[in-house]
Design a protein around this nucleic acid. Sequence first.
DNA 1: ACAAAATTTGCAAATGACTTGCAAAATACA
DNA 2: TGTATTTTGCAAGTCATTTGCAAATTTTGT
Lengths: 124, 124
Amino acid sequence: MTKARKTIMDILMKSEEPVSASTLAKDLPFDQATVYRNLHYLEDQGFAESFILHCSEHGTERYYSYRNANDVHHHWFHCEMCHRFIDLGHCAYGQQLKEWEQSYGFTIHEHTFFLTGVCADCKS
Amino acid sequence: MTKARKTIMDILMKSEEPVSASTLAKDLPFDQATVYRNLHYLEDQGFAESFILHCSEHGTERYYSYRNANDVHHHWFHCEMCHRFIDLGHCAYGQQLKEWEQSYGFTIHEHTFFLTGVCADCKS
DNA sequence: ACAAAATTTGCAAATGACTTGCAAAATACA
DNA sequence: TGTATTTTGCAAGTCATTTGCAAATTTTGT
Ligand SMILES: [Mn+2]
Ligand SMILES: [Mn+2]
Ligand SMILES: [Zn+2]
Ligand SMILES: [Zn+2]
């Protein structure tokens, strides 16, 4: 495994919340193309997952988080003031998704869910 | 109300599914800046709502739909093959969102939810 | 209907996240 | 170690969306 890939993988593993691709690209000492290509690679291999979120201050960016092989993914709340994410816990939509698949006949590949607003700290 | 604004508003009102901003900008006989500015205006005024969705064929685009003053919004399934949207019906997360607000102390401004996959027609 | 004030439009250039071609550098494999 | 495969940096490109500005349109007050 290359240095760039290991660095990115480590960051994702250690991070408590999703990290944006463009921020990684700016902060890391690798070319942006290398960062983006590695994020794609990690997601392809199932080591990471991502979603696109728009915030007025940082614009539209893709956020990545580490994906544990056996672990279920999480959904998040994003604070529009401090830009931190709050973990909403494991995804609890499995059953609902199956029901929709049955009643509509489609096959779901992905579902996107997140909240935006102002966190408790920023309100006070 | 200007011609451009009325045209865009009409399209949103008549459309059965969300329409992408960039498609509107390409297809309508107004400048793209005018289209984008009017979409922002309509959303600001509460006549439209939008979400960002990425599909491999069309890339990352913002999709708009008309928002009826009294009506609750809908969530959607997007088919990655035919690129149509399937209406999943009224949003049923009101209660859940309130519970999260209480247990986490944050205030939710928006929630984003949608599905992607392959529709029944495209599977056969 | 008329003129001034306020808003909107078209144009052209800019923005910013992300992608891509290519040759050099690093890594994996025998 | 030598060779095949993968990855990297660089530079340029793509594409949705935004922005400044002067001209055109719409709104307001009379
Ligand atoms: Mn943010
Ligand atoms: Mn699509
Ligand atoms: Zn906050
Ligand atoms: Zn389909």
